[in-house]
Design a protein around this nucleic acid. Sequence first.
RNA 1: GGGCGAGUGGCGGAAUGGUAUACGCGCACGACUUAAAAUCGUGUGCCGAAAGGCUUGAGGGUUCGAGUCCCUCCUCGCCCACCA
Length: 833
Amino acid sequence: MSAYSKIENKWRKLWLKARVYEPDLRKAKKPFYNLMMFPYPSAEGLHIGSVRTFTGIDIYGRFKRMQGNNVFEPIGLDGFGINSENYALKIGAHPVKQAKISEKNFYRQLEMIGNGFAWRERLETYDTDYYKWTQWIFVQMFKDGLAYRKQSPVNWCPSCKTVLADEQVLPAGKQEFAGECERCGSKIEKKDLEQWFFKITDYAERLLSGLDKIDWPESVKVAQRNWIGRSEGYSLKFPLVGIPEQEDRKHSIDIFTTRPDTLFGATFVAISPELAKRWINAGWQASDEIKKYISSALARREGREISGEAEKTGVFFGIHAINPANQEKIPVWISDYVLDTYGTGAIMAVPAHDSRDFEFAKKFNLVIREVISPNGRDHDLRSAYMDPGVMINSAKFNGINSEAAKIEITKFAGGDRKINYRLRDWLISRQRYWGPPIPMIFCSACGKLGKGERKDMPGWYSVLEKDLPVRLPFIKDYRPQGTGESPLAKDKKFSKVKCPKCKNWACRETDVSDTFLDSTWYFFRYLDAKNKRKLFDWLRVKRWLPVNMYIGGSEHSVLHLLYSRFITKAFFDWKIINFDEPFPKFRAHGLIIKGGAKMSKSKGNIVNPDGYFKDFGADVMRLYLAFMAPLDSGGNFRDEGISGVDRFLVRVKKLGAKLAKTSKDGLSKNSEKLLHKSIKKVGEDIENLHYNTAISQMMILLNEFEKLPSLPWHPYGIFLKLLAPFAPYLTEELWQNFSFKGSVASGWKKQNSIHLESWPKFDPKKIKDENFKLIIQINGRVRAVLDATTGISEKEALEMATNDENVKKYLSSLAGSPKKTIFVPDKLLNLVI
RNA sequence: GGGCGAGUGGCGGAAUGGUAUACGCGCACGACUUAAAAUCGUGUGCCGAAAGGCUUGAGGGUUCGAGUCCCUCCUCGCCCACCA
């Protein structure tokens, strides 16, 4: 037990009862939505890093509150989804039961950190009242044409017999583990299944342009831009030759390129193994050799794409295409270096000007023809020449600049400008148990007749809004099937449903949606968490959104933040909100490490906050975590470091004993100056999330106050206010003890809380210095530091300098008079000899 | 391979182009104590007896003056990765 537990418990209860942190969501005059990414209740409990983020943003929120804002700081749990389910699987508990246990543990931990949470609005994504609206969003996406089904390969672990999310397949970076299941280490395979997708690609352009108007760290914006991967290029058609006229056969290949200027040097076409397989499935003839290559290439590609280092393989497809620029007959190859998921799955290969094509052509002895040259002549190509240059070997385009040739050659070859994106549609289905059932129904009877809610998807109906939520049934064996179906498929009571159209027996969709969907919209729901009839009350949303300040981990730079922006833009298009960027201001927090290494179970260096909060108290831990480093950078968690802030708080408490008897006493001029400087600095530092330097400034101020024989009341009150966002419990207690306002004995009221006091203001006049240290430099080196009066002229400064013994010595030894003097008012004088 | 970020004491870190190492930890010495802890005080980048010199990953540049701006390189961290 820490020395503070008693007062912490007292104030926690009083604050809760008085609703100090519950703004009126319907009427607040100066709403300020202070949001942190909600946690998913992990196995180990609240991570010390999350605690730092939560208390960190709470410091900001308390500061904003004292500045007169109605601060709303909600909290909830992102407890639905694969992570929680895997934990349940691991310990052999049922996710439904485990959720309740984790929930209790997390809320217990979140209560002890001293945050001003609006507890009444808390939510959990697995709550029926919550996921009802997750499903509602799915229904709207379907009706709007933004949800669709398509065949897609999923990750499948043959040993766990389960479908895995991409995040669960070890990434390519760790070479020796690439493409392995994170749980059992088996090689991941791909299975083709019909999956639901959200058409996020429709929003690619807006997701890109929206970045320009939001205040986010540049690195996060760059990450999103790269993820979206807009590429301006051209599409070209390569006709195929020698193909018998048959309906079911392709007669040309479409490709995307950013380098049409190299078209005359395109000496072969390469297509992805996946595309080749689709053609063969559609009726193409292919030799056994080719089929064998395709299946071995696909097998190698299972799991994540292998690293760029891997050697390229390929096989001649046995057909030829026509280069549209020079009508040359060029071979069509199948190769594993062609990505199926980017562009059209087919490329024109220009070995002379693309390193990958070059490598491939060398290996298979294909024609390499130079068409761009740095100097207008052929030269010996040892590697691909990828820079711009002068056109050669390109018929009538010879001699012109390659940049100019891009559009000319495209026109000549009958191509078009095309913008291509790296971004792919969002795969939303999960063949899992622990998530919101996708609210769709398939009727085979309607499907045969081509009927459905949407013409492009015969037989598919969304669940009627009045029938939402589609409740996740409790099933005993929730383990993933490995059949490509969700465990829900086994529950016939669940999956058998009447068709909303023809009333015959139909099938319910048994997949659940991706966890990331749950977290795209939680900040809307916080505003109206108890509303059973609507997603949210429009007036509240109008009053509070978009979010004023959002803080979270940069690991969500791409997925969560991009998906949330996407859903918000969809809401905007559905006209249920009037803004289309949810987080105009976002800041990423840093990572704290322990003993120089990232915290992990295998290293055994995970810090459990429970013991620390118990031993030191919330105020000390909040201060320690804030003092470690600026919030947006990391820090090393060291037990020894805690004592510094612990002592600091003890001294703050002791300082109260020194309070002067009357409130009339003033401070000396110097102390007052420091006080006002501190008010300024602490405020500015909090605004910039530089809590470490704010605390350092308060320590300096405390050191000054401690030196005084007695301390007047007023400055002590100001000091407590500056400290209040960091150490909410102790400052509230001292505020009350010294009767700045009310006391518990006289019936403590909300209005008496230090946390609703106004933030101190500094007087710019009182900050002005009358004296300063004049730095005298000779040739840029400091030779004297003199006390001077603020505002002295260059002449006066020079006089002071030349009268100084030390300076005299240098001037005489260097035997010269200053050639030049540089004078920075109230700062320094530099004599150049 | 590409993108982003970072390299400052024994440690976390601080420095609008103007006294580098604030604040804190740790350490040393001293006071208090029978003693220890706690507390308080003093000191604490490196070399040097001192005067003084050197020091922000390495090297160059711009500047009267560079931790800060520019170029080259090295190391570490994170993200992406055959994106045509």
